[in-house]
């Protein structure tokens, strides 16, 4: 056990998986000498050499397509796309090939690769550097989408993702990268991709969030319990696809009320999918309409006003109070 931030925890997972499995290699822009612009791949070039840690030409589509080719010949590439906003240049290779090669070759060519990328707002970044478009990838059959919320689960989930036989989009909440430290174990916790975590048990209402939004959600929980006497249950989704329907349904069947938080745009967002599943599986237990606290249906604004775009604890508290007041 050691205290570390999320960047260190991710680096530890990369280092350990590379040490354990020669098939694991790291590929991306500035991942070598520079150690990644957020330093997640720091030191890997020195340890594993340039045959396993590659700086590529500047081309996201090229990186993903090449990694697909490496994966279908048995390597386990871990791709870094410098910011998730740049993934759009690789959309074609992700959708047409990374996500479907196993299926279209009927199992002959599985694509065991991870695409890591920092996502989300809150760090006063320039245009195109704050997007939260996980819904695109959750909508794409053949992919898994994983979003950790803290150093400890980031460490274990990156291990699980690299060892997964299928392609994983691994969204790293960059607002959390260096935001806090946490005890990280020496060996990964056995978290399975596709399993959500109940981080607080409660009776009155279910709060669902993931990634960077866990922080304002937990802040809201503090306020709700201390100031308003509310006893919320909190679910950290961790895996957007596949989604842990059972944990969501079990919780909401108990509480009857639910608020979902994400920073991505609202329309056809992850909250919409969660509501659909609760509608299908927990309809008779619902005591109030399910509320969404999300980003607006606009492009991520320039950073001067990003605080007005990103959900915060106050708005989550308001949404919970409104949901609890519904009769």
């Amino acid at each position: 056990m050691a205290q570390m931030n999320m960047v260190r925890a991710l680096n530890k997972a990369l280092d350990e998986t590379m040490a354990a499995d020669e098939r694991v290699c790291v590929i991306g822009e500035d991942v070598g000498v520079d150690g990644g612009v957020f330093r997640v791949t720091k030191g890997l070039l020195d340890t594993y050499g340039e045959n396993r840690v590659f700086d590529t030409p500047l081309a996201e589509c090229g990186i993903v397509g090449t990694a697909v080719g490496m994966a279908i010949y048995g390597l386990r590439p871990v791709v870094e796309i410098q910011f998730s906003g740049f993934m759009m240049q690789a959309f074609d290779q992700i959708e047409q090939n990374m996500a479907r090669f196993r299926r279209r070759s009927r199992g002959r060519f599985p694509v065991s690769m991870v695409l890591r990328t920092p996502y989300g707002g809150g760090i006063r970044a320039v245009e195109h550097h704050s997007e939260s478009r996980e819904a695109y990838w959750a909508h794409t059959p053949g992919l898994k989408v994983v979003i950790p919320s803290g150093p400890r689960n980031a460490y274990s989930l990156l291990h699980a993702s690299i060892n997964d036989p299928d392609p994983v989009i691994f969204y790293e909440p960059k607002a959390v990268y260096r935001a806090f430290r946490e005890e990280v174990p020496d060996v990964p916790d056995p978290i399975e991709i596709g399993t959500a975590q109940v981080v607080r048990e409660g009776a009155d209402i279910t709060l669902v969030a993931y990634g960077a939004m866990m922080r304002p959600t937990l802040e809201a929980v503090e306020d709700l319990t201390e100031m308003h006497g509310v006893d919320p249950e909190v679910i950290d989704l961790l895996s957007i696809s596949p989604m842990d329907t059972d944990t969501l349904v079990t919780s909401v069947s108990k509480t009857g009320r639910c608020v979902i938080v994400h920073e991505g745009p609202r329309t056809c967002g992850i909250a919409a999918e969660i509501i659909a599943r609760l509608n299908e599986n927990a309809f008779e237990h619902l005591l109030a309409p399910i509320k969404r606290v999300t980003g607006y249906d606009i492009h991520f604004p320039f950073f001067q006003v990003e605080k007005h775009f990103l959900p915060d604890a106050d708005i989550i508290v308001d949404a919970v109070k409104e949901t609890l007041a519904y009769e």
Partner: peptide
Amino acid sequence: TQLLHAVGLAWA
């Protein structure tokens, strides 16, 4: 799209 896969296969 397949040109990049050829690069990846050869790289592997």
